[in-house]
């Protein structure tokens, strides 16, 4: 039955995504459109719903442990949610071929990001004075409290707007833009950046998802099995992650995403090598 295929798509997307630190959205949309024949808007809507579920699940721990910077997240969320809303409205107006083409380009960029992201390192400066948006958390691996300040807020707001726009337009979380921006441009420690981005993604995805839901583009037949699969996949992945070499997995996923990127670009011109 097709619903079980959707559960499996969710399981694989959630599992692989969580293992390499990406939301499942980048895998869900191409998998649903290229392998299951789901219309791209329904696939994007299902992906947004699944992204909200995984973001909430991840954020529970990050927020409780104090890694997520809620005040910074909410401040950036002003521009991110506006971006998400505009992305949702744009997606509703664009045709299938254009959406496929944009998704293909985005997948290529994410693939590149996966290959270079290990070079992104902490650039924060320890500061006793946190300022209005700075934060602190206890890092068990360092055995001490980390205090940091936030710099270049306007850059963060601009990048967040772009991330939100891509989220609403393509049904992905946008963490691949937010996390490097928070670390490199804004000087946030890696752990706080990942946690804050996870906290934000659910709210951002909502801004886009409301457009899709109220316009009847959320198909429960697709969205519910995918969401259940993604949540289970992310949970299983969190158990398996310590035993898996994430470096090799990241390279494999980057190659798969590059292949999907090429196919999505071809789909923009009506060519489908996968036969759906």
């Amino acid at each position: 039955m097709q619903v079980f295929l959707f559960v499996i798509v969710g399981l694989i997307s959630g599992g692989l995504g969580a293992m390499v630190g990406l939301g499942g959205g980048v895998i869900i949309v191409p998998a649903l459109t290229l392998f299951c024949g789901v219309p791209i808007r329904q696939a994007i809507a299902a992906s947004l719903v699944a992204v909200i579920a995984t973001s909430i699940t991840a954020a529970i721990g990050y927020v409780r442990e104090g890694f997520a910077n809620i005040r910074l997240g909410m401040t950036l969320e002003i521009s991110t949610s506006i971006g998400g809303m505009l992305g949702g409205l744009t997606a509703a107006a664009l045709n299938r071929e254009v959406l496929s083409g944009i998704f293909g380009v985005a997948l290529g960029l994410i693939s590149g990001y996966l290959l270079v992201r290990h070079r992104i390192a902490d650039s924060y400066t320890l500061s006793c004075e946190q300022g209005l948006l700075g934060g602190c958390y206890y890092d068990p691996s360092l055995g001490k409290e980390v205090h940091y300040r936030v710099r270049r807020l306007p850059v963060g707001l601009l990048a967040s707007f772009i991330a939100g726009n891509i989220s609403g337009l393509l049904g992905v979380g946008g963490g691949f833009i937010k996390v490097p921006t928070l670390i490199i441009a804004m000087g946030i420690p890696v752990k706080a950046a990942i946690a804050t981005s996870s906290f934000m993604i659910g709210i951002t995805a909502c801004a886009g998802a409301y457009i899709y839901y109220t316009r009847g583009m959320v198909n429960p037949l697709v969205a519910v099995p995918v969401t259940l699969g993604v949540t289970a996949g992310a949970y299983i992945s969190s158990r398996l992650a310590p035993r898996v070499k994430s470096v090799y997995l990241t390279i494999i996923l980057a190659i798969i995403l590059l292949g999907l990127s090429i196919q999505m670009l071809l789909a923009a011109f009506g060519i489908n090598l996968l036969g759906q």
Binding site: I78, S81, A92, I203, A207, Y212, Y213, T214
Partner: peptide, 12 residues
């Protein structure tokens, strides 16, 4: 913004 998003979706 979230409320506006839902409203614009309904009106679209």
């Amino acid at each position: 913004v979230l409320a506006l998003s839902a409203t614009l979706g309904v009106r679209g």
